[in-house]
Structures are given as structure tokens and as C-alpha cells.
């Protein structure tokens, strides 16, 4: 157990738990904040764990997450805000 692994444990324990709490409550756009922060945290945790395990090839995981996490968040924002057809309590659904 070196300092890097310890940092990884702290990040995934103390950091991820609040994100999970936020992402499990409230309206979708509020949950998105939790998911987004979790993406950053997990990416950093991947980097730290790669250093801790002494396997530099594990950094690819952080690279992929760094590329995909913004894409995933943009997917959500696209469908939450950019959909004029979204019915329900928010806004007035416009007929096509």
C-alpha cells in the first residue's frame, strides 16, 4: 500500500460517495452534475491507481474516460435541453 494507492482509495471512497448521493436524487439535470464530477474523479483515480500498481498501460483507461466522459455528458445535455418535444411538467411540448 503506497501513497498512490491510498490516494486512489480516498478518491473512490470519500469522493465518489457524495457523487452517488447527488446522482441518485432530484431532477435529471441535477443528477448530471454528480455523474459529471464522478467521471472526473474516476479518471483521476485511474491515473493514480496506474501509478500505484506500477502499470503505466492502465493510463489508457483514464485517456478513454477523458475522451468519453464529455461525450456522455453532452449526450445528456442534448436530450435534456435541446429537445423541444420533451413533454411532462417542464415546459410546453410543441406540436411537430
Amino acid at each position: 500500500m503506497n501513497a498512490w494507492l491510498l490516494a486512489g482509495v480516498v478518491l473512490s471512497g470519500a469522493g465518489l460517495a457524495p457523487c452517488m448521493w447527488v446522482s441518485a436524487r432530484g431532477a435529471p439535470h441535477l443528477r448530471l452534475v454528480g455523474v459529471n464530477l464522478a467521471g472526473t474523479l474516476v479518471a483521476v483515480a485511474f491515473l493514480v491507481l496506474a501509478q500505484g500498481f506500477g502499470r503505466s498501460s492502465y493510463q489508457d483507461l483514464a485517456l478513454v474516460l477523458g475522451v468519453l466522459a464529455p461525450a456522455g455528458t453532452l449526450v445528456f445535455t442534448r436530450f435534456l435541453a435541446g429537445d423541444p418535444h420533451r413533454p411532462g411538467p417542464s415546459g410546453t411540448p410543441e406540436p411537430e
Binding site: N36, A69, P70, T77
Partner: peptide, 12 residues
């Protein structure tokens, strides 16, 4: 990525 997604979430 974090900055841009923050802006996108803000807009949403």
C-alpha cells in the same frame, strides 16, 4: 472536457 461540460450543464 470538464470546462466545456460544465458550460453545457449550466445551459441545460
Amino acid at each position: 472536457g470538464g470546462t466545456v461540460t460544465t458550460m453545457a450543464i449550466g445551459r441545460a
